[in-house]
Simulated assay, not measured.
Amino acid sequence: MGASYHQFCPVAKAMELLDERWTLLIVRELVAGSCRFNDLRRGLPRMSPTLLSKRLQQLASAGVVERRPADGEVQYRLTPAGRELRPIVEAVGAWGVRWVGELGDADLDPKLLLWDMHRNIDHAAVPSGRTVVALSFPDVPAPHPRSWWLVIADGEADVCDEDPGHEVTVSLTAELRALVEVWRGDRTWAEVLRTGRLRVHGPEAVRRALPGWFTLSLFASVPRPPAAVPA
């Protein structure tokens, strides 16, 4: 745990654990369903594996996370104490959407976007068989990958930054910021399509159905505050 605030206040005691850098984001990933170390890394692509291991150990020592052997590997699961953090994570996220809306270019990460998209798919809405969504972000600076693929089949989805070699069902070409704004609920699919910041290529029926394949971010439905009225 971090340095003590030396206060008896329960907020202070909780924050001795939770305000360590990355800690609450690890809890966010566990709440979202990640349980394997590599999956946690994909949801936290800019966190070092060493620091992730350290934070998981701290959470386990605090009784928030437990390690379980499963299928020949270690999985990380929230304990009852950890599961009580779900509404806190959701409340912090909702507050962030409402009051900290500004996104810098450094906040835009295609790897994190695709990882979040892959776990928010309405599999009942996706065509049967294998469905491949190819995404291209021409504005992403090198050396970061500009091309990504979502492979959806049998109720599961995988994210690839190399061509998996399957026939593509539908293709998207987008400004990264535009698709992030759609995913966060800041813009609608229709809005960014009209502006040309997002283009969809494929059969018309598939293009029309595509938005319904995704349930969007957990925070996309958070009501935004009314625009400030000039004095």
Rank of each mutant, 00 (worst) to 15 (best):
H166P: 02
A124Q: 06
R98S: 00
A178L: 08
R119S: 10
W183N: 03
P143Q: 01
W148D: 04
D116H: 11
A91G: 14
H166Y: 14
V192F: 00
T173N: 04
T173A: 04
V200N: 03
V180P: 00
A91R: 13
R184H: 09
G96H: 06
P87F: 01
L150I: 14
A94S: 14
L103C: 06
R177W: 10
D161R: 08
R86P: 03
L198R: 08
E156V: 14
R199M: 09
I88V: 15
H201T: 12
D105S: 10
P164N: 03
A174C: 15
V132R: 01
P138H: 02
G104I: 03
E156S: 12
R119A: 00
E156W: 04
W149Y: 10
D107F: 03
V192L: 12
V206K: 00
V151S: 02
V133P: 07
V206R: 10
L103R: 13
D163C: 11
L108F: 07
V140A: 07
V126P: 08
A205W: 12
W183Y: 15
E175P: 01
E156Y: 12
V100L: 14
V159Q: 05
L108Q: 09
W149T: 03
F137W: 05
V151L: 09
R177M: 05
P110F: 01
L172R: 08
R197M: 13
L172N: 04
D163L: 02
D154R: 11
I121N: 04
A190S: 10
V89L: 10
L198D: 10
W99G: 01
V182E: 02
T173F: 00
D158Q: 14
P127V: 06
S171D: 05
P203K: 13
V200E: 00
V180N: 07
L172E: 11
V159G: 05
E84F: 10
L103D: 12
R177G: 05
L114R: 01
R177I: 11
A106C: 12
T169Q: 01
D163F: 10
W149V: 00
R184V: 02
S147M: 09
I152P: 04
D105V: 13
A209I: 03
F137V: 01
A178E: 12
G96E: 10
L193V: 13
P127F: 04
V180H: 08
P141R: 13
L176P: 06
I88H: 03
D158G: 09
E102W: 12
D186Q: 06
E102I: 10
W148Y: 15
R207P: 06
R146P: 03
W183L: 10
V168E: 01
I121E: 04
S128N: 01
L113M: 07
R187W: 02
L172D: 00
D158S: 15
S128K: 07
R98A: 14
W189L: 07
V182W: 02
A153V: 14
W183V: 14
G93M: 04
G202R: 13
E167G: 09
R98D: 09
G93T: 01
C160F: 13
E167V: 12
D107C: 02
R177F: 07
L179R: 02
P211D: 11
F137D: 04
